[in-house]
């Protein structure tokens, strides 16, 4: 059994925990926003450029697909470090919450884009064909057919991505990104203050649970039956 001294809870710096929570939420919110803004178009591009698809460009698809795979295969910690110069250039700092957002987005975009591609593949080909038979242009098909028809799947993909981002934020401590995960590692793992670790883990768990049920209930609400 762990020998826990819950009296330590009284000594926990709740202000620090509050700050860390805020940091996590900021990183999550901002990086999720940019992930969707970049990942959704990339996912659509992957889908329509794939061989046999609406605008088949096999070479372009192969290149994009390879890049996505490269980024997805890199451990996030490595991405954090490798991207530091780029981050500095882009946001003026490569550390802290602001510095963490760039690698978070770079890590999550390929993940989300691939999920989007797979969700779009589930759209009934017959429906796409029916739209073509009515004279739909590509833009019509994307905005009036593909995206609306796959909305529940897209929300599901965004939920999975947000949960994955929570995991990524934990590692951003490496570059001083802060947040709950960082707190858990610094106090719990490195200083053996298990109580703090447990508190942060509970908070992270609550966050993940909250994201998942919010996502699920949105999916339920926009299902088409």
């Amino acid at each position: 059994m762990l020998d826990l001294d819950w009296n330590l809870l009284l000594e926990i710096d709740w202000v620090e925990i509050g700050g860390a929570t805020l940091d996590t939420l900021t990183m999550l919110g901002v990086s999720m926003l940019f992930t969707v803004l970049a990942g959704l178009p990339l996912g659509v591009l992957l889908f329509i450029s794939a061989p046999g698809q609406l605008r088949a460009r096999p070479r372009l698809y192969a290149v994009l697909s390879f890049l996505v795979n490269v980024l997805r295969s890199l451990p996030f910690v490595i991405l954090l470090i490798v991207l530091m110069p780029f981050t500095l250039l882009l946001v003026g700092t490569s550390i802290g919450v602001a510095g963490a957002i760039v690698p978070l987005v770079v890590g999550a975009v390929p993940f989300f884009a691939r999920l989007v591609e797979n969700v779009l593949r589930e759209v009934d080909r017959g429906v796409i064909e029916a739209s073509q038979s009515m004279g739909a242009r590509l833009s019509h098909i994307v905005f009036k057919v593909l995206l609306p028809e796959s909305l529940p799947g897209l929300i599901g993909a965004a939920t999975v991505t947000a949960v994955a981002l929570v995991g990524y934020t934990a590692m951003s401590g490496v570059i001083g990104g802060g947040g709950l995960g960082d707190l858990a590692i610094r106090y719990g793992y490195q200083r053996f203050q298990t109580e703090i670790m447990i508190v942060t883990v509970v908070l992270l768990l609550a966050l993940v649970q909250g994201l998942q049920s919010a996502g699920d209930s949105l999916v339920r609400r926009c299902r088409f039956d």
Partner: peptide, 26 residues
């Protein structure tokens, strides 16, 4: 040129009226 399909190919995300409206929007 209208086309009718064996498996209907309606948009699940749209109501009956919105499905019929779809080609008008296009």
């Amino acid at each position: 040129i209208g086309m009718v399909f064996q498996h209907f190919n309606l948009l699940r995300s749209r109501t009956v009226a919105a499905n019929v409206r779809f080609p008008l929007e296009l």
